[in-house]
């Protein structure tokens, strides 16, 4: 069924390519066609409930580095579709905003902007949603450490009276995990984040 469906989509949108997927229909869509494709999917194919918007960071050395992911559900024929769209610019990634056609995208895109730093062109109010307004980093990027980075406390007056700072979290006790590949020593379970005292020179 998945194949037949993709064929019918391909007929309509020549620019789509099929994407490997362990579950439901998944397509790759170039960023410049995303808006047009989603509008048509909503109006003509019944994919009307945007359930999720997110992105993947494939790490700094890869290009394209960021891929935006959209999951849309059809409330009539109960099927999901996944649309993946690579961001063009690796340094200042951006995608067209879907907030105009799916109001649900508004918050999801703000979240992705907050966490990944992807700019959504045409978004009505693109600002941070989970972290505070002037937080300087995008925490879900791969180079950002889990423990965090020292930055000023969100409120200056509280920082002064309570002597509070935003500090990296201590990571000495774990979580202990092993990586997927490497030498015996590297795949041995260890605290993944070494920003605290587990720096190489301290071993």
């Amino acid at each position: 069924m998945s194949d037949a469906n993709f064929a019918s989509l391909k007929e309509r949108f020549a620019y789509l390519t099929e994407r490997d997927s362990a579950d439901h229909l998944a397509v790759n869509c170039p960023a410049e066609h995303l808006l047009e494709c989603c509008t048509a999917l909503r109006d003509d194919f019944g994919y009307d409930l945007l359930v999720d918007v997110t992105a993947i960071d494939w790490a700094a050395e890869t290009s394209p580095r960021f891929t935006g992911i959209y999951h849309i559900l059809s409330t009539t024929h109960h099927a999901y579709i996944r649309i993946a769209s690579d961001c063009v610019d690796d340094a200042a990634p951006s995608l067209p905003s879907l907030a105009g056609i799916f109001p649900a995208a508004n918050w999801h895109e703000r979240e992705t902007y907050d966490m990944m730093g992807i700019r959504y062109e045409g978004h009505p109010d693109l600002k941070r949603i989970l972290m505070w307004e002037d937080y300087p980093y995008h925490p879900l990027r791969k180079e950002f450490p889990l423990a965090g980075i020292e930055v000023p406390f969100p409120a200056a007056d509280v920082a002064e009276t309570a002597n509070a700072k935003v500090l990296p979290a201590p990571m000495m006790g774990g979580p202990f995990v092993s990586s997927a590949d490497g030498t015996m020593r590297e795949i041995e379970p260890q605290a993944k984040d070494e920003s605290w005292t587990e720096k190489e020179e301290n071993r």
Binding site: L130, M131, P145, A147, A164, L167, A169
Partner: peptide
């Protein structure tokens, strides 16, 4: 801070 040793969590309310 409990099980949330992450960038967003204050590591103990006694810091403030």
């Amino acid at each position: 801070g409990g099980m949330y040793r992450s960038y967003a969590t204050l590591q103990g309310v006694d810091r403030i």
